[in-house]
Simulated scan of single mutants.
Amino acid sequence: MPEAKWRVALLIFNGAWASTVYGSLELFHSANLRQPQDQQFHCDLLSADHKPVQLYGGHSIHGDSIIGEQAYDLIMLAHYWGDFEEVTQQYPNIPAWIAKQHAQGARIAGINSGIFWAAESGILNGGRATAYWRHLREFEQRYPDVQWQANQASVEHQGIYSSNGQNASMDLSLHLLEKFCGASIAAGLARDITFDSRRIYDLNLINIAGFRQHRDLGIHKAQDWLDEYFTESLELQHLAKQIGMSKRTFIRRFQKATGELPSRYLQRLRVEAAKHRLANTEDSIKTIGMDVGYRDISSFSKVFKSLTDVTPREFRRRLRPAAAGVRNISKSD
């Protein structure tokens, strides 16, 4: 068996939800099965000590290993629903261990309310995250130095990932697979687990999360609107007026906060949504372009290539070779 490229720790503790542990574990295992001669992941169920862990559903399990000096590339923090004060007192060594791992370069992914471990460690101070909606108010009070994003399904901040629900957690796991293994494996696994291609694509909110790393509340409000209505026609004058700015001030502040012009940010949103449709549906390229906000296929293809270096047709061909000949795909991309 070849040595795996990446080491993944799935942290378990009393009260952890088994579904959020094993769902990620099986997804990484599926990635390994796709390339048996080129193993991607070595996964450990990791506990804080040698005691058995009582999962939320009542089952008792032991970890493969306990937290220590072993360095990991990715640490997954299971969802939790219980007394946060009690569980942090049970495991006083977990927060410092997470902080050390993050300092060494590990990516940290909190599945839904599991993100509280990252907040408890201090690595989220001054940063952004989301969590399961039932716990957001408690987290806002418990961790006031974190900007909690109630309306975002998934958030990334400096290598720390978070999600706010069951669907979002699966999107998050697939996004991490894409980060480590590339888009082809991630898209293939998404199809294998029968993702509902009709569901609104949440990953665009992760893939452009770097443009949210600022504290301009007015621009965050504008981004919230764009994230929801990116398929609609945009008039900067109207959007600027909605948030109480002149068009000139809005453009200046948007570019200062995000590093991008509003029009380019909008293009990124549309292209991310189109990438999902190209990978997971048989819709024609023309239909996809119009559905994400473009009036003609020429404009769509030009913008798509400027952001991805390939045309929509080539993007689909790389991820889905068998779809290249589907009869309803437009030939004029």
Score class of each variant (00 low, 15 high):
Q39H: 14
A18D: 06
N167E: 15
S173T: 14
A48Q: 11
F84H: 10
E235H: 10
T231E: 12
P52G: 04
R252Q: 12
W17A: 15
S162K: 02
Q223N: 07
R252C: 07
E138W: 02
I193C: 11
L236A: 04
S306R: 11
F13D: 02
G126S: 10
R34S: 14
Q166A: 14
F254K: 02
L77V: 01
Q147D: 13
H238E: 10
A16G: 14
K5T: 08
Q37P: 08
E69R: 09
C43W: 05
H79E: 15
I61E: 03
L203S: 13
D227Q: 09
F230A: 01
G110R: 03
W225S: 08
A222L: 05
F250Q: 06
S263I: 10
E3K: 10
L177A: 04
H42S: 12
Y80N: 14
I75R: 00
N204T: 08
H102L: 04
L124P: 05
R215S: 10
I329R: 14
R107W: 07
A257L: 08
R316N: 03
P262G: 02
M1N: 15
I108E: 00
L203I: 10
F116S: 13
F195E: 14
N204F: 11
F41G: 01
D49E: 12
A103W: 03
E156T: 05
E86W: 03
V292P: 00
L203Y: 06
A131S: 13
L261Q: 04
Q147C: 09
E26R: 11
R327D: 13
A78D: 13
E314Q: 11
Q104I: 07
G210Y: 09
Y161N: 02
R252E: 15
H135Y: 13
D283Q: 15
T249M: 14
R264K: 07
A106I: 09
Y56S: 14
I67R: 01
S184N: 06
L55Y: 03
K100W: 01
L239S: 00
G159S: 06
T130P: 00
K256C: 04
F211T: 13
H238Y: 06
K286W: 10
K256L: 05
A71Q: 11
R277L: 11
P92R: 11
T130D: 01
A168S: 10
F195K: 13
D145F: 02
W117R: 08
S162D: 02
A153Y: 01
R316Q: 06
S163K: 00
G23L: 02
L45R: 06
Q166E: 14
Y80P: 13
K275R: 12
Y161K: 01
L261H: 04
K286G: 11
S184G: 04
L236Q: 05
D83Q: 09
N93A: 13
H79R: 14
S301G: 05
